[in-house]
């Protein structure tokens, strides 16, 4: 029987605050730089929700590729040309919980 693909929802935030879109763009380009377009394609990378002004976003990926996503978030050092870091607030198995954490942080 085919095995169900497990997914994880990662809540990320930028420090200092920038727009949510910049965060997502930076994570995606960092992932592509580290693991290539093919790596990005098979990782199940999908942006689920972006909190525009708060610099918070929820990104989904397959559990198997979670370390890759975490490394991609960790390797971001600049956002909009300025020194920055991307932190993970939580890693969740459900979108409901991920949203809860993101909204509590806001």
């Amino acid at each position: 029987m085919a095995k169900r693909l497990k997914r994880r929802y990662v809540v990320v935030m930028a420090e200092p605050k920038v727009s949510g879109e910049s965060v997502v763009k930076a994570v995606k380009s960092s992932y592509r730089e580290l693991f290539g377009s093919f790596g990005l394609a098979i990782s199940g990378f999908k942006v689920m929700k972006v909190y525009r002004d708060e610099g918070v976003a929820i990104i989904r990926c397959f559990l198997k590729h979670l370390p890759n996503l975490l490394l991609a978030t960790a390797s971001v050092t600049k956002l909009n040309g300025e020194d920055a870091a991307i932190r993970t607030l939580t890693i969740s198995g459900t979108m409901k919980k991920a949203k809860e954490v993101a909204e509590n942080y806001l």
Binding site: P67, N68, L71, A74, T88, I91
Partner: peptide, 18 residues
Amino acid sequence: SSSLELRNPRQLASLLQV
């Protein structure tokens, strides 16, 4: 050498996982 260069434990561990 600054707080922006620090990473959380899961992010550091992801390096070895990769």
